[in-house]
Design a protein around this nucleic acid. Structure first.
Lengths: 137, 137
DNA sequence: AAACTGTACTATGTGTAGTAGTACAGTAAA
DNA sequence: TTTACTGTACTACTACACATAGTACAGTTT
């Protein structure tokens, strides 16, 4: 049987995001960075709940959303696995989400002091950590 | 008496953000882009509520948060005005917020298709619309 | 059969968001 | 002085989101 991957996420008290969303976003990044490759087996609902000291239903909710997003694949009685990535959004929806993300980001940083070049470098660096972005020009 | 500025924001049904937050973020951008210059007089709590067809207490809540953030200055009996910008965060807190914003942004775009150079250009372009970022190198 | 796994449900409590309504204090204009 | 604007603050209510606790069922492997 496949060995359970180590999931390196934690819940930050005081983070304005709900707990289940911190899990969702934490796992999205772990998968996007290649720390959880396709086929990796995630901790069980009850296992991750104990690890994070939260309720199992909260973990189940996060896992359910990731499954709906196509990042995970659930097999009842067996566990949850990182799914083979597939294109799920059409071009228009992609463009819309990209635009929203840029707008939200600029809103967040609008009142901060920073050097523009430095900022763009940091963004480029963070993007380069995404595993499927590493091989691009 | 100062003329009330026209505020070009609207509430998007279906937007996951609470209504008061859409107002906060909309006004932050209007101010940051120079559409609402220092000293501009905003619509009254009751006026904006009517304009947006929402409750006046919801507007008051948004205005209150913007006042706390230092972007607006309230004068009881007179109205609300765009405040003189002032540095409010220390360097550490700035860096922390910048890091969080980048992290959140990369999480949002991690599964989208985009050309890296194009993305960085679009971010640079959006930043250039911020009025206090126009004169920078 | 036991022990793991996911899935789904009810029930409860807490906190947030928004509305509706009301009232008070400050200011300017008539 | 009155009127009409302004911001500020409060109570009360409803609805929803979030998280927990508990329970039970079905699938799979050992």
């Amino acid at each position: 049987m496949a060995k359970t991957a180590v999931v390196n996420i934690n819940i930050v008290t005081g983070d304005p995001r709900p707990i289940f969303r911190q899990i969702v976003e934490g796992l999205r990044m772990e998968i996007a960075c290649g720390n959880l490759p396709v086929g990796a087996k995630l901790p069980s609902v009850r296992g991750l709940a104990m690890q994070l000291t939260i309720n199992a239903n909260t973990v189940a909710k996060a896992y359910s959303e990731l499954t709906t997003q196509g990042l995970l694949e659930a097999r009842q009685g067996l566990g949850l696995f990182v799914a083979q990535p597939k294109q799920r959004l059409n071009q228009d929806e992609q463009e819309k989400q990209l635009g929203s993300a840029i707008e939200k980001f600029v809103n967040d940083i609008a009142y901060l002091d920073f050097d523009k070049k430095d900022l763009l470098n940091r963004i480029e660096e963070s993007i380069s950590k995404l595993s499927h972005k590493r091989d691009e020009d």
